[in-house]
Write a protein that binds this DNA or RNA. Structure first.
Lengths: 214, 214
DNA sequence: TAGATTGTTAATCGATTAACAATC
DNA sequence: TAGATTGTTAATCGATTAACAATC
């Protein structure tokens, strides 16, 4: 299944979006070129790590010069798949679902919200950023008729587990999970979880025990 | 400053809330005891890792028996500081701020929302879960009069950087940062960032290049 | 007691950092 | 060309896994 030649480690993948963000900021500041060393100061990582990370994907730099900011930015976009469109469906039209739907920048990066669903029939027909809220019951028919790349789950955990199972069976390959639970889907299905309560607990721990970087 | 004897690694700290969640679920299911091996199957980690992790904090188990679920749950709560109250202030009363404010379970874990602030004067006086929305201008006076443990930033990046700097100067020790930027605060200040766009980009990467676990 | 399972030490694996030759 | 900085190999560091003696 299109297995890549040399496996990129998870640690590297997690850092890529951060490189991308910083390069975007540098472009806005009008910076044309940057050395791994300058970037390392800005990002508070080692220059060595930056060079190692980038060289997983190819030699984007030039000896004696450094990296061209715009080119590197575009290359990372390509690596991250941001040059392609991704259709997104949001399940749950509560505050969190609406927060995601309203984040305009997602569209700029190629994430197109194709539908919003909620179990509450009262919301049916209302719109969020011009997108009609549909009843959750319709999701399976919708999934059969539309190619959905990513499903965002902003509903309570019991429902989230159930909906994910059903949609995975219909071929959805990626879930963005905001429910406070693990999902029960096949190995090859991507699950990226945002567990806000766990994030908050880490703050609590660090307040008790003194900070620690990440 | 109350430096702990043996430094706990970040990797361990990140896993603690997940142990806590699973133990909570086990309690709900009426499970009284569990071995590291049974837990490892449930959580999809190695039993070895579970025992190593827990033994950073003390021997909570018993040979030949395993772990008492309720006791372990309470011990982890204590380690995470969930037995203490933490005051939280939310900056930004948009969808994301409201989503956080409305998450009832936070209060159960001892996180008390003391105030909500927004730059939009039209919101002034409206309430979220019974908490009045104040004008952002009032935050510094508020910070001087109240002990704030954690400040959640759900405002655009420029404002977030600015507000964080000002509040750090007033002694706030922890920020829960939802803005798409790094904060500029002293080393000893805790910053836990939730970068939703970076999370979404990781999904995009994995869709392009085949999944990878975490 | 015998069996089970922990706590902990040792071995392995992987990720980060350092170093430097290649080269622009 | 000389200077700068990459790409990449080697060294180090840390985290995970395996193994097993201790002990309930």
């Amino acid at each position: 299944m299109a297995e890549k030649e040399n496996k990129i480690s998870n640690a590297v993948i997690k850092r890529l979006p951060r490189y991308y963000r910083h390069l975007g900021e540098l472009i806005e500041m009008g910076v044309e070129r940057i050395s791994s060393n300058e970037l390392s100061v800005r990002m508070k990582v080692t220059a060595s790590q930056i060079r190692q990370d980038l060289n997983n994907f190819g030699g984007f730099g030039q000896q004696g010069y450094g990296y061209n900011v715009k080119i590197l930015y575009m290359e990372i976009a390509k690596i991250l798949g941001l040059d392609k469109k991704h259709s997104v469906v949001i399940i749950g039209a509560g505050n969190l679902g609406r927060a995601i739907a309203n984040y305009a920048n997602f569209e700029k990066r190629g994430f197109i919200i194709e539908g919003i669903f909620d179990i509450n029939p009262k919301l049916k027909g209302s719109t969020i950023r011009g997108i009609e809220v549909r009843n959750l019951e319709e999701i399976e028919d919708f999934a059969k008729e539309h190619a959905i790349d990513i499903v965002a789950l902003t509903i309570p955990k019991t429902q989230a587990v159930d909906v994910a199972e059903r949609l995975a069976r219909l071929g959805v390959k990626a879930f963005w999970n905001f429910a406070h639970t693990d999902l029960n889907v096949p190995e090859d299905v991507i699950v990226e979880s945002v567990h806000l309560s766990e994030s908050l607990m880490r703050i609590s721990y660090m307040l008790e025990n003194g900070s620690s970087m990440d």
